[in-house]
Design a protein around this nucleic acid. Structure first.
Lengths: 160, 160
DNA sequence: GGTGAAACTTCTAATAA
DNA sequence: TTATTAGAAGTTTCACC
């Protein structure tokens, strides 16, 4: 599964195309890179086996699905040794989409997604109720802006 | 592009399978849901046209790619009306993977990805240099934990 | 490593129900 | 809306560079 694989320019360009659309036909990629579809197939498989490609997922419009509310919750623990326990509890709440153990102001830091303010309130209360949490601080997202993955990839590949 | 579409149980299950692996053959989905591959095709297309499915992307192992460092940077602005300008500047830095305008402690809040602490320092200096930013507060992620999308989808579909 | 072609699988659109 | 069908397209393997 995990391994060390040196990626070359061809691999970078394959990833580049698949990052934009995971269903880009290998034949299209092959045509663009002037290689055979078989080669694309082998290289993708290799990157999957090496664990560089961990999977693929859909980007959904959560607003249209009725989940427009995003907030970040900073968590202060009573004692640091409770970190693992609290992280595990957070992972059990599906509305917590990502959680980090952090240095700095907060001990733990997580992102939540909810339908609306009222729904978010319930989720935050749920978090507040976890044993070991002293208090939380909520930051509501008024606007979200993404940077597309392709640009980060270019940085990585060109060692900028 | 955008539209109101009511999703039924079949749609939910199609999304469920594609969220885990966007390349799941429609024939597999059809077999599991006891419908025809043509129907799967039509429904996926409909969800794409409605904008519910916005796209697909690869999940990459950034640690293996040499980008193991994650931090969140809270930004305090000099004046609120500079928000848009600063957001635009942040979008130009590929290492800033996501940025939010927030209520609460910070005016803006962003996530950065870098090779190491030294690399991160340069990025944070870059952010500090943006006009209109008063000061920043960095939280380094020591450990990241994801919640899989499937569970969030189940919440959404079951109106929990 | 890569190719090109064969065998197999999947997609897609049209038609019919 | 869904199923069926059939031709087009894509994937995957493999013998051979």
């Amino acid at each position: 599964m995990a391994g060390k694989v040196k990626l070359d320019e061809i691999d970078h360009q394959i990833l580049d195309m698949l990052i934009e659309n995971t269903r880009t036909p290998f034949t299209d990629i092959a045509k663009k890179l002037l290689i055979s579809a078989g080669t694309v197939h082998v290289r993708v498989k290799k990157m999957e086996e090496a664990g560089i490609i961990r999977g693929s997922s859909l980007t959904l419009d959560y607003v249209q699905l009725g989940y427009a509310f995003i907030a970040y919750v900073g968590i202060f623990l009573e004692k640091t040794h409770q970190t693992k326990f609290v992280m595990e509890r957070l992972e059990q709440i599906p509305n917590v989409t990502i959680a980090h153990i952090t240095t700095g102001k907060f001990n733990i830091f997580c992102k939540i997604r909810a339908r609306d303010t009222n729904h978010a309130k319930n989720i935050i209360f749920m978090i507040d109720d976890i044993d070991g949490i002293n208090r939380t601080e909520t930051m509501i997202s008024l606007e979200e802006s993404f940077n597309d993955k392709k640009r980060l990839m270019h940085m990585i590949f060109n060692e900028l």
